[in-house]
């Protein structure tokens, strides 16, 4: 097989994969509507406000509900205790 043909076949296969990823995204988005329903119902029922991504401290578990300046709540010069604190931006209303 000529090298250019082999290359075209490779690119074609990669493009098929690329298109498949877009189709897969579409299908899973469609499925997610029903799968997420249980989460949305729970959020509505319990009045949840935050995602369970960082559970180590109350201001990382509920960043939207935390006290103002909560990252430094122990005293104003306190150093950060948790690695997540260095990655979390203060809520929009405090900026």
């Amino acid at each position: 097989m000529r090298k250019s043909n082999a290359f075209i076949v490779c690119i074609f296969l990669l493009l098929v994969g690329f298109t498949a990823s877009l189709i897969d995204a579409g299908i899973r988005q469609h499925q997610a509507v029903s799968e997420n329903a249980s989460g949305t119902v729970l959020v509505q029922q319990l009045g949840l406000t935050d995602l369970v991504l960082f559970t180590e401290a109350r201001y990382t578990r509920h960043p939207s509900q935390s006290d103002l300046h909560s990252a430094f709540q122990d005293h104003p010069m306190a150093l950060e205790h948790f690695p997540s604190g260095s990655l979390l931006l203060p809520p929009q209303r405090m900026q």
Binding site: A25, F54, S84
Partner: peptide, 19 residues
Amino acid sequence: PVLKGWAVLYPQFRLTPFV
């Protein structure tokens, strides 16, 4: 590991692709 930080509880979730 970056997201988990020092947390013990971490959700197992499969994200829905939004491209």
